[in-house]
Design a protein around this nucleic acid. Sequence first.
DNA 1: CCGATAGTTGAGAAAATCTCATGCATAAAG
DNA 2: CTTTATGCATGAGATTTTCTCAACTATCGG
Lengths: 312, 312
Amino acid sequence: MHKAMPPLSALRAFEAAARHLSFTLAARELHVTPGALSHQIRGLEELLDVKLFERRVRAIALTTAGKQLYPGLQSGFGQIREAVASLNAVGNSKVLVLSTSPGLTSKWLVPRLYRFSNEFPDVDVRISASVNRANFTTDGIDMAIRYMTLEPAPDRALESEKIVEISLIAVCSPRLLKKHGPVKSAQDLARLPLIHDESLNPHMAAFGWREWFEAAGVGSVDLRRGLRFNSADHALDAAGEGAGILLAFDLLAYDDLRTGRLVVPFRLALPSGRAFHLVWPKGRKANQVAENFRRWIKEEIAALDWRRIKGR
Amino acid sequence: MHKAMPPLSALRAFEAAARHLSFTLAARELHVTPGALSHQIRGLEELLDVKLFERRVRAIALTTAGKQLYPGLQSGFGQIREAVASLNAVGNSKVLVLSTSPGLTSKWLVPRLYRFSNEFPDVDVRISASVNRANFTTDGIDMAIRYMTLEPAPDRALESEKIVEISLIAVCSPRLLKKHGPVKSAQDLARLPLIHDESLNPHMAAFGWREWFEAAGVGSVDLRRGLRFNSADHALDAAGEGAGILLAFDLLAYDDLRTGRLVVPFRLALPSGRAFHLVWPKGRKANQVAENFRRWIKEEIAALDWRRIKGR
DNA sequence: CCGATAGTTGAGAAAATCTCATGCATAAAG
DNA sequence: CTTTATGCATGAGATTTTCTCAACTATCGG
């Protein structure tokens, strides 16, 4: 007699672990602890009487049996997820769930979404603002805006399209300049209070004030001083209150620069080598709502007038 | 935000109920009570915020949403089951699981299986003898031998092949005839003790002694008398012990007739209008073991020599 | 050498699932 | 027409499954 079907939760645990080749990442995806996932996998192996993973230190690899089991499960669970997602999509009329960073959300996207809603009043756009990278498999996300290299390596599961390259510019409140006198050189900036936005470059060899001053030809600037924030919108708000000079993403400062709440004390835009990309899953059924959003956001980016801000 | 993925067990409950269009049958397949299944479905509907079934009295029908959700789940769960089954098949080397009735098993199949094992020594044939119709989806069955009409309606999920038509014949021990004198007519039989095998025709408008006597031109036979059994092998054993004349499936009586343990007192073979069919799931990967079994059982059927038994 | 990381494991807690019993509304049988 | 049978619904409590937590092991990286 064939063995009984194993528990579906164990099969799902296996599928996620096989896809990530990591118990830790799979556990995170399934919102359980690695201990729970480890138990599930071991239980599945006992039930099927076969090893599914080779355990190395701090890594796992699929065994032959695991490689044989995985594709059918991946496809099977994928179909189940698609079935549920497409029901939800229909059930919710037109909903677009977009994942992006809090800074981009509050400083650039939200002030513009009313134009998208005016053009598409029946579409419900829902922003999932998070510092963590959204997971398309489990988080119910339709699209994401991600800050990545100019030409990111192709992802087998995702399509992406660059929408705007990012440069770093120094911005401050005009009141700060009034108080401290005009800035004639980058060296002048080095003497003013600095604001550091540490959210710009999490977990990566990062651009910051050091690189900006070097590009401006100013050496030996003491960068230990100054306010530090770990969210871009708070940093920009502090700069707008006159707390100091902030090195910011040009896109995120755009609206404040347009309104005059912020100004560019020294015109040097340092290309970050990265851009915001719109990202969505491959194979996701063609979706008019998502198409409309893509077109709309590209139009919004194209409509930005940088000349009055950066002289270009 | 999209809703969270519902519990897999609830989705499986829905898929089974949608496939059967019955909570009761789905519950039986999943080895739970109908109450459990009802709870699962209702919970799923609340979570998805959509009705999946129209409840009628003693029947259910899929709603539009249910029809939309079902195909992806059916395919998804089907792939998961296939993935597990094919892993088990590999893991178990060559195993063939066959479901059939206890009578056919003990009176005809088991006495012959040694020839199959001799020809295919590495194949492990496992008989699941049950009076209930096996379920290919959940019972781990590779093939079944079922007693069905000569030309059964096509089943969308199953392939079938008729292997032997069945006739009803009267059989008894030669010792019975020695005790009661020779039988010259069917009328003579009507006076002898009868044995009824009530397993021949469960839940169906059935052939039995009444039809047999009518075909023999004998009316008004008192059929209330005689021993009654609800399993064919027990009935055949009782006949072999001289307990009476049994109306039996010719195939099931074959071996006892060949050995002389049973004889045919009056040669009238009444076609039952039904046959044993070999049945297996559509889409199941081509399986050499199953192919071998099909060929083998057809050869065994073809090799039966009915002339010495029925004069044909 | 020390801290970080990934997987393991057992015990107990929490959550999910199930059984059971009762009820309702027909459909079928007598 | 009445009675019985059947399928689904439901709440409460029991049972099972899944999970968390804490401690452990064995590397890897700084």
